[in-house]
Nucleic acid binder design. Structure first.
Length: 93
DNA sequence: TGCTTGACTTACG
DNA sequence: CCGTAAGCCAAGC
């Protein structure tokens, strides 16, 4: 699960990653990513991790939007513009 | 070992 | 846009 923490910690400012994307990188299911975040997500920019449709994580959605705005993440209304805000998965190394 | 649950995803209506 | 269903992997009981 260090993988997940490492990846989330490396997400560049103004970019985001979906649970599914992280799940692909760590070769596991999206639900595990969420579960890991709930347990070890402390201290990580969890607000840069959104769902595949661009909606913020299930908790602190208002907080997430606020932080994303501060990060300069391409927001479209109350959700993230995934097309532009999805971080390159090959560069987080 | 088997069932339930969850910061999820995709597809349908 | 919202609700429902099936698939998914791991933890907890």
């Amino acid at each position: 699960m260090f993988e997940v923490r490492d990846i989330v910690a490396r997400i560049p400012r103004g970019k985001v990653l979906s649970y599914g994307d992280i799940a692909e990188l760590v070769a596991t299911g999206p639900r595990q990513v969420g579960r890991i975040m709930s347990e070890y997500g402390s201290g990580l920019p969890w607000h840069r991790v959104v769902r595949s449709d661009g909606t913020p994580a299930a908790c602190h959605d208002g907080e997430a939007l606020r932080l994303l705005r501060l990060d300069g993440t391409p927001l479209r209304g109350d959700r993230v513009d995934m097309r532009a805000a999805r971080a390159p998965m090959a560069g987080l190394d």
